[in-house]
Nucleic acid binder design. Structure first.
Lengths: 336, 336
DNA sequence: TTCCCAATTTAGATCGATCCAAATGGGAAG
DNA sequence: CTTCCCATTTGGATCGATCTAAATTGGGAA
């Protein structure tokens, strides 16, 4: 009842010392086979659970990692998380989750709390306006760090993310191949690497394809914000025939907004998203998008972190997942 | 660099004993104001971070709780999580997250791991086919337990969830008020309390409204599964005029499936979902659903757990959130 | 039979913070 | 000038596991 089973208890019952039980727990080859079996049986009998907090005091690994994401509503982050959790679960590790709500102050508090809990490493999707020196600071604290999806303080830490430059290119070439010449981009206002990367891809693609920049409209990162932006897009001096969106959430909102304005997405205006959230296929018309495989990115981030925890001095690595174009109805048929 | 700052270090620099610093850390009223200020300054200077694992060895609280969910893809769970995380963050607590993938074996492993990490309590959304004795076992391990969203071993633990009996009633009365008399239910096969509750609500509502049971069709819990079920629903001997769905994911899938079969949801067949996921508003036609406020449920579950950790002997409590009907387009206009 | 070595096992110190019981110090009361 | 008291502070033991260095064991070689 009140008494928790400790190494000491197991040792007493099995008639050996704590040290020996400890060796058995850690599967050391030093213990004799017979002893190991006996001890393991006692551990099972008593329902012994190793206290990892206590163990961490002496060795160092807590087998705990922290993940900081800026929100938990967009299912992109969720799938990402599930990839991280999958890999960490395999390694008998445990995941601390926290939501920074894109607020750097909250993010600092979270990291402080994580430190107090002795995490071995952190997967960080940095909040907007995070101090670029943060990753460096984390490393000084002896924390393994991997940035994911967004990146600040370039080149200081490992990184896992999607290749949005390429993804934007895929989407743009698709639109151009359908005959679109004037293409707008529905962006977010927040200054993150995610935005910069997409804009860079856009510029490259515009040059490469010779298409016309149909205007860059900024919306709040929510479907409502995107819906409201529909009017602004329709009022652009030279109305674009297609809109590429920052992500599927905005694309879905834009389609709803277009409908409110009496336009049919995919017919009156082509719409393409990025990320290929599950909802892309459920919309009507279904949404053409570029799949970025968030769960896979989560797995890669987790593996990078595992590697970094094993060797703090290994060279910096980047794992970049390329997107895959999913052509559906919202990009419409070939025009003109 | 390598040296971590400990209580000892702070004590030496501030010229007091470890015990005093410890009292300051824990905001004990026993220390003199002047001493407190000096120590706090030194703590800030040295960037001291309290090691919670070490602290837990003596007191007991680890300020860590675990959350087990059966999946991370449905955004319902994600929003739920974000409610939990919100409340725990306020209390300087930390959340361990794990995904059981609806597998009781994995779930056992997770709970074992959580125990090893010394969690103070667990919020459990039990996996399918979980041994009903599990909650009792958890309590024997001195863990505070709250079940959420699903429930097994009734009455053994606190519970937070949505009132789906009532939610189904709201949806059914809405459909009946529109003139529907033959209403089908699109369910899932898995035997969970979530399913039982909805079916109970359905039966009550059928009696209450005098509507006809239009058939109960079972689908896999995924939108693809629901899409495939559309054909089966259309082939029912007496075709229903409306379908109430287990949740919005199935409803969205069903609408896609109806479209594939050449039917227009909301016109040829009314569709109503449950949960009111964000996607409900983005679909076309937008989906009539019953909002269950998962984030709020998460908050309530978290508060129940906090209460339970404070007092293990308090009477069992249940926090039930009632749903709110959101009438949109998919339920169509009044018929006949 | 004795000695040495390799294979196992162990006692004791240790990690960082908290608890306890006891020490300290300054002022009020006698 | 004592004595007592209260507010503060403190050393040492402790939580449960791991590390280190040293002790024990059994078997084979000399």
């Amino acid at each position: 009842m009140q008494g928790k089973v400790t190494l000491q208890d197991v040792a007493r019952v099995a008639g050996v010392s704590r040290a020996t039980v400890s060796l058995v727990v850690r599967k050391s080859p030093l213990v004799a086979e017979a002893t190991r079996l006996r001890v393991e049986e006692v551990m099972a009998d008593l329902d012994y659970v190793r206290d990892i907090g206590a163990a961490r005091l002496r060795d160092k690994s807590s087998r705990t990692i922290g993940v900081v994401v800026p929100n938990l509503v967009n299912s992109f982050f969720t799938e990402f998380l599930s990839g991280v959790e999958l890999v960490m679960g395999e390694g008998e590790r445990v995941v601390l989750l926290a939501n920074s709500q894109d607020d750097p102050i909250r993010q600092d508090e979270i990291l402080h709390r994580f430190r107090g809990h002795g995490v071995d490493g952190v997967i960080l999707c940095p909040a907007q306006d995070t101090d670029p020196r943060l990753p460096g600071r984390l490393r000084q604290w002896d924390l393994a760090v991997v940035q994911a999806l967004r990146e600040i303080g370039i080149e200081e830490t490992d990184f896992a993310g999607g290749d949005y430059i390429d993804a934007v290119g895929l989407a743009m070439r698709h639109l151009v191949s359908l005959g679109h010449r004037r293409i707008a981009f529905l962006s977010v206002a927040a200054q993150t690497s995610a935005r910069a990367e997409r804009l860079k891809g856009l510029m490259q693609a515009l040059i490469e394809t010779g298409a016309e920049n149909g205007g860059i409209v900024e919306a709040e990162l929510s479907w409502e914000g995107a819906a409201r932006s529909a009017a602004r897009i329709l009022e652009l001096p030279a109305r674009p025939t297609a809109v590429l969106c920052f992500n599927d959430v905005l694309a879905a909102g834009l389609m709803a907004g277009l409908r409110q304005a009496g336009k049919v997405p995919g017919r009156d205006m082509a719409v393409v998203g990025l990320d290929d959230l599950p909802l892309a296929e459920l919309l009507h018309p279904s949404l053409t998008s570029v799949a970025m495989m968030p769960q896979r990115i989560g797995e890669l981030a987790a593996r990078l972190l595992v590697g970094r925890m094993a060797d703090a001095k290994a060279p910096i690595q980047r794992s970049i997942v390329s997107g895959q174009l999913k052509v559906r109805e919202s990009s419409g048929n070939r025009i003109i």
